[in-house]
Design a protein around this nucleic acid. Sequence first.
DNA 1: GATAATTCATATGTATACAAACAATAATAA
DNA 2: TTATTATTGTTTGTATACATATGAATTATC
Lengths: 162, 162
Amino acid sequence: MADAPSDGPECEPSGSVSKPADTRPDGYVLEDQIGHVLRRAHQRASAIFSGEFGEFELTPTQFAALAKIADSGELSQNLIGRLTAMDPATVQGVIGRLEKRGLIASKPDPGDRRRTLWRLTDKGADLLDRAVPAGIRVTALTLAPLSGAEQKTLLDLLERLS
Amino acid sequence: MADAPSDGPECEPSGSVSKPADTRPDGYVLEDQIGHVLRRAHQRASAIFSGEFGEFELTPTQFAALAKIADSGELSQNLIGRLTAMDPATVQGVIGRLEKRGLIASKPDPGDRRRTLWRLTDKGADLLDRAVPAGIRVTALTLAPLSGAEQKTLLDLLERLS
DNA sequence: GATAATTCATATGTATACAAACAATAATAA
DNA sequence: TTATTATTGTTTGTATACATATGAATTATC
């Protein structure tokens, strides 16, 4: 948590600021803006993810893609994006890195020549199996500061934001 | 909202999947993972931000940096990062782009030769003044799906996650 | 059946985001 | 004073994330 203002000497820029708090531009408090709060919460969730997934070398989006491919058996690149809430251009990179590691493999869609179908390789399926417990752990750890009821409430409210 | 699975023809990959739902790797449902839900909520907040800030050409982090600098009058690069929850390497880029546009200016810290102090230029202060209402609007629009009480609850729960 | 609109994958450019390594400076301990 | 440690800012590399543009393939429409 390196976001506490800290009481180092740099906190008093240089004597008094010209304007008193009352007459400042406006009542814009960064910490009260939902976007900033969401960003910070996401940062923390990502950090916890990194910690738990260290041995697997998977990012959150890579793991999400693997999980969704496993659920369906085969998925087009475009559908992977929709199921994981990723931009097509973002999927491109994620898929490329997973393929380079031999975790997924592709074949052209016989019914639609625009599409590429992706599936897990044995190596990918094995890695996913081993990584799933870490995924469960990430959510538990991230939500740990809240009670069970609060966790439900939070997930419900966030869901309704989207 | 491009994340609904959609009922296009690509949703039935190709007949039946080998394993029934019961015997699949594990009960890992992406949509129930807090990290994924946070990521999506943050995506939506960012999209709303982009819409409201179109004319100002400011990103969320750029705006946050401007607001924090305005609050303090002068800030070191490092402190900007801590106040806006940005990595030092990330601050580097954000600050650089703001400077290139002439919205902020720097001078060496007289008391510490490692530091660079940043302040708003007149142009930057003017832009910030005009942009603050958009910032307020972004939070209102993003939280619009929730009641006032729910908004308070959400911000409180998210705050406790960090 | 020809045309228009849509979809899919790709490519480029900009902007976070963070890890890791580094040099310069400052603060502290021995 | 010297040695150690911590802080500040920078650089490099990897990975999202999205806007925009393009081309190929498909679907819808007339």
